[in-house]
């Protein structure tokens, strides 16, 4: 049973993966217009026409005169070998450019994930202990609003207040240009200083989902019988709170974090553009501006695969962590997709 479920999920991920690749393959072919108009094209340049002979030559050269199925197969094998195409703006293989930018985005997303977990768990458990009091109500309200405001608006506010207003943080970039560092510590400090606002912004937008989950699941756990038992045993309050209650409430967070990854990546794209942070999101915008299609598709593929990969790992991890779910569907247990108001996994 369990094995069947796992393989079913794997199959689903494989399907999603194929869907994304197929989308990537199909998009340029569905796009209106002639690919050869874009071939020699930076914006504003005069595009020269091709003679029929040249067109035929290029069609042959790019394999566009072959049947679609064959093109599709070739595309799949190229992607499998890590060839994502050649960027015609940067004049470099797409994979090389992405590899250069990816660490910045990873750094940002990882920091923001950790920060939002910390904020979310702290505030969520505080709210759950104070359920019904004004502190809980205020926090809940703030979090509901924060969860809806898009990352770039929060980022702009922070940028205006903290960077442009009082000059506490740099306005843009990930490191000071042309800086000479006396030690590697200085360098790390500079990088952290630049990453502070983007990471804070991104984590603020994602805190609310985690907050709501912790608040709700802790709320139901606090009403359980074993909490009363623990109290009756005369256990110290912190022990009850952290060892008995919080530990059980944290389990659904594994899937939650993974499910948020898609939104997190979307948020990162926006935040990087607010703070001109040199990650994949900024690169994506640049690719959009110069209409560098291969680069854009490469970034999209890498982002989509990372998000899916995280989800897959979280699925496996959850199964490992919670033996109760080995026979039930993880996703149903966590009430995914019901607008953040998650039903805690009351199995």
């Amino acid at each position: 049973m369990s094995l069947q479920k796992t393989s079913l999920r794997s199959l689903e991920y494989l399907l999603t993966f194929l869907l994304i690749i197929t989308l990537n393959f199909a998009l340029p072919r569905l796009m209106p217009g002639d690919p050869f108009l874009h071939l020699s094209g930076e914006a504003g340049e005069i595009v020269e026409g091709y003679t029929d002979q040249q067109r035929k030559y290029f069609l042959e050269y790019y394999g566009l005169n072959r049947p679609v199925t064959e093109q599709y197969w070739r595309y799949l094998s190229e992607v499998a070998r890590g060839n994502l195409g050649f960027s015609y703006y940067y004049k470099e293989p797409v994979l090389v450019i992405i590899a250069r930018r990816l660490p910045w985005t990873l750094f940002l997303v990882a920091t923001a994930t950790v920060l939002s977990l910390i904020f979310g768990i702290l505030l969520g458990s505080y709210s759950a202990w104070r359920r019904g009091y004004w502190q809980d109500k205020m926090l809940y309200l703030i979090m509901v609003v924060f969860g809806e405001i898009p990352a770039f608006l929060i980022g702009l506010a922070l940028l205006i207040l903290l960077a442009a207003g009082i000059g506490l943080f740099p306005l843009a970039g990930a490191i000071t240009h042309f800086a000479r560092y006396t030690s590697s510590w200085d360098r790390i400090k500079d990088i952290l200083h630049h990453a502070a606002l983007p990471a804070l912004t991104l984590s603020l937008t994602r805190t609310s989902g985690i907050y709501l989950l912790v608040r709700n699941s802790l709320g139901t756990i606090l009403a359980r019988d074993y909490m009363r038992t623990a109290r009756a045993k005369g256990l110290a309050e912190p022990r009850i709170r952290y060892r008995h209650a919080l530990r059980n409430a944290l389990l659904p967070l594994v899937t939650r974090v993974a499910l948020q990854m898609g939104a997190m990546v979307g948020g990162a794209v926006l935040v990087e553009n607010v703070f001109v942070y040199p990650g994949l999101g900024r690169l994506m915008r640049d690719a959009v501006l110069v209409r560098d299609y291969p680069l854009l598709q490469g970034i999209f593929l890498v982002l989509a695969i990372s998000v899916m990969g995280t989800n897959y790992l979280a699925d496996l991890l959850y199964r490992y962590l919670d033996p109760r779910t080995r026979t039930t569907d993880v996703m149903n247990a966590c009430g995914r997709g019901t607008y953040g108001k998650t039903e805690p996994s009351g199995l």
């Binding site: 999603t16 994304i20 898609g262 979307g266 794209v269 994506m284 970034i299 999209f300 998000v307 989800n311």
Partner: peptide, 13 residues
């Protein structure tokens, strides 16, 4: 499948 897809990048593309 829709839940796993990262919305914003897909929409950008």
């Amino acid at each position: 499948i829709m839940v796993v897809l990262p919305d914003l990048p897909v929409m950008i593309v």
